[in-house]
Simulated scan of single mutants.
Amino acid sequence: MIDVRPAVPADAPELVRLRNLMFEAMPTMADLAGPGPWQASTEAILRDRLAVPAERLTMPSFVVDDPGRPGALAACAVGTLEQRLPAPGNPDGRFGFVFNICTDPGHRLRGYARACTEALVDWFDSRRVGRIDLHASSGGEALYRSLGFGEHSVPLSRQRSYD
C-alpha cells in the first residue's frame, strides 16, 4: 500500500523541486525550466495556501514521501478549487483544476502518481466539485483517462507573458 498524505507548508520546497522536474520533462517547457524567480514565488504561494485550515483549503495537494530520503518527496499531485456561480450542469458551482502531477525519476512506475492523483480526485469528489480539468502530457494521458478524465473543448484561451 502506498502512503499518500496531504501536503503541508514544509513540503513547499520539495513541491517546487518536483514542479521543476515536471517542466524539464515537457518539450515545450524544458528550455524554461531551472532556477528562476518563479521558484521563490511558487514556494511562497504553496506555503501560504497549504497553511489554511482544511475547511478553507483551495489548493489541495497530496504527496508520497521518498522512503530513502527524510524530508524529500517521491511524488505529488496539486490542484486548485474555485467557486464559480452555479449552473445547470454544476449546481454547486465548484470547479477543480489539476496542474502539478510529478514523480521523481528515481521513483517512477511504482503507482505513486496514481495514488496522489486518486487522493486529489477523492478530495474534489468529497466537496461535490462538478468539473475537474487538467492538461495532460502524452505520458500521463492514460493515467488520467483511467481515472475518468476525457475530452472537453475550451474554445478560447488567452495567454500573456509578463517579465
Rank of each mutant, 00 (worst) to 15 (best):
Q83R: 14
G68D: 12
G36S: 12
P27G: 13
M59W: 14
M29C: 14
A25S: 15
G89C: 14
F97Q: 11
L120S: 02
G79T: 04
P27Y: 09
R56G: 10
P105Y: 00
G106F: 04
P37I: 04
G34F: 02
L21S: 14
A75E: 11
T58C: 09
L109D: 13
A44Q: 09
R56M: 13
W38A: 09
I101L: 13
E24A: 15
S61Y: 02
P86H: 07
L32F: 05
L109P: 01
A33R: 07
P105F: 01
A87T: 11
G79W: 02
L73R: 04
V121F: 10
R110M: 13
P60Y: 07
L46C: 10
C102N: 01
G111H: 01
C102T: 05
M22W: 15
P37K: 00
T103A: 10
E55K: 07
D104C: 01
T80C: 14
I101Q: 13
R114M: 02
G111C: 05
C76S: 12
D125N: 12
A115S: 10
S126L: 05
R108V: 06
E82F: 11
D104E: 10
L57F: 01
F99E: 15
A72Q: 06
G71H: 03
T42G: 08
A44S: 06
W38D: 05
E82H: 14
R114W: 02
G111D: 08
P37H: 03
R84W: 13
D104L: 03
